[in-house]
Simulated scan of single mutants.
Amino acid sequence: MSIEIIVGLPHLSAGPILAQACALRQPALISANALSRWSDRRGWREWAGWRLSQLRNAKGLSALCLDSAGFVAAARYGGFPWSLTDYVALAAAFPFRWWASADYCVEAEIARDREEVIDRLSRTIRANRDCRRLAEDHGIADTLMPVIQGRLPADYERCIDALWGSLRPGSLIGVGSMCRRDIHGPEGLVAVVDHLDQILPPAVRIHAFGVKGSALPYLLPFEHRIASIDSQAYGISARQAARQAGMSKTDRFVAAHMARWVGAQHERLASRALRLPHHRPDDLGSMPMDPWATAIALARSEIRDLIESGDLDHDQMTAPWIEQWAADIYAERLAG
């Protein structure tokens, strides 16, 4: 068994990015947020439905999966701007390979204390059950992927216990709150995957949301358990490379970065003699409360990950660049 690389797409508009994904014959993941329509007609920005016409452009992809955009919804909007009924209707509008249950992420910048983490676990369990009920009404329950959440490895077990009845042999479940997680430590990526490997039935595999390429060497011992990961890290790399070159970040430029990134991930998976990268002990669990300080911390973390994975040169972490990167993160949050 091998871990499948699923490419996160920023949109489904016809153009170089989608064409590259089709040419690579690479399965892709689209966020519900990327398919959203928005309106300012009433004097404020509000959700106005789905851009279903874009789904027609996806027919050339080898496979397309759908994510509920739980982190984006929490970080930008304070919650889902659409109902679960709306979301499941979107899932029914296209033959997705799988579509993820709605979930409530528990990253430190979203769930700031233990009580809020537990509250969001309960909401995730309820959202899974509601999505399954609605999926059965639409006849798409067989492509629904349950999603579990947690801060501690044992938190995920709480979700699994509640959803055990829907975990049949051959099931695929999504594991959330992974992309900002350190690799090592008691709450690290390896600890979570190892814990899940011990408690899940042998025939159940997992999709790990947002795992960066630098973590792949540490996941190779769990190939029997991990079916796939997804990432859009190539987009971050393209943005910064374009800035350094003093050029626009066009879709064609991003598409070229996608091709190189996909190739690099397959090389990682193909090499069993791969040297494990040096561990960088980040404490993202103690993310500062101040929005600018948070943006700086996230910028440093993202740049370090890309340097370790080989997507950026080792000398590309400078104070002005960190501030520019943080400014983008800060502006994106304000825009949301």
Rank of each mutant, 00 (worst) to 15 (best):
Q265P: 00
S301Y: 13
A14P: 02
L269F: 06
A102V: 11
A92S: 15
R151P: 00
A241S: 11
S271V: 05
G185L: 08
A264D: 13
A242V: 06
A270Q: 13
A242T: 05
I3T: 05
S122G: 12
G310K: 05
R120K: 06
G174W: 03
N128S: 11
I226P: 04
R112T: 10
S309C: 12
V192H: 02
E308M: 10
S2Q: 14
C131K: 00
A111N: 05
G8I: 00
S2R: 14
R333E: 13
C22M: 14
H314S: 15
A203V: 07
E136M: 13
S228D: 04
S237T: 14
A73C: 15
R129F: 04
L216K: 02
A34F: 02
R76D: 03
T143I: 14
G139H: 10
V204W: 04
A21W: 06
I118C: 01
A32E: 01
L144K: 05
R275M: 11
D290E: 15
A215F: 07
I199R: 03
D182F: 02
P27R: 11
S309H: 01
H195F: 12
A241H: 07
Y218W: 15
L52H: 14
E46K: 11
A89Q: 14
I226E: 03
A34W: 03
I3E: 02
M247V: 15
D313P: 07
L90K: 08
Q54M: 07
Q198N: 13
R275N: 09
W292M: 12
A141K: 07
H184M: 14
G165Y: 01
M317P: 00
A58Q: 10
S68C: 12
L172N: 03
A92T: 06
R133G: 01
A23C: 08
V106L: 05
A102P: 13
C131D: 07
R151S: 01
R45V: 09
H266S: 06
A233W: 01
Q26G: 04
A270F: 09
S171M: 05
C105Q: 12
G70F: 00
R97V: 13
Q240L: 07
R76T: 02
F71D: 00
I199P: 03
E107M: 03
I226H: 04
R45P: 08
G139Y: 09
L298T: 07
L144M: 15
L61A: 05
W82K: 04
W325E: 03
L167F: 04
W261P: 01
H207N: 07
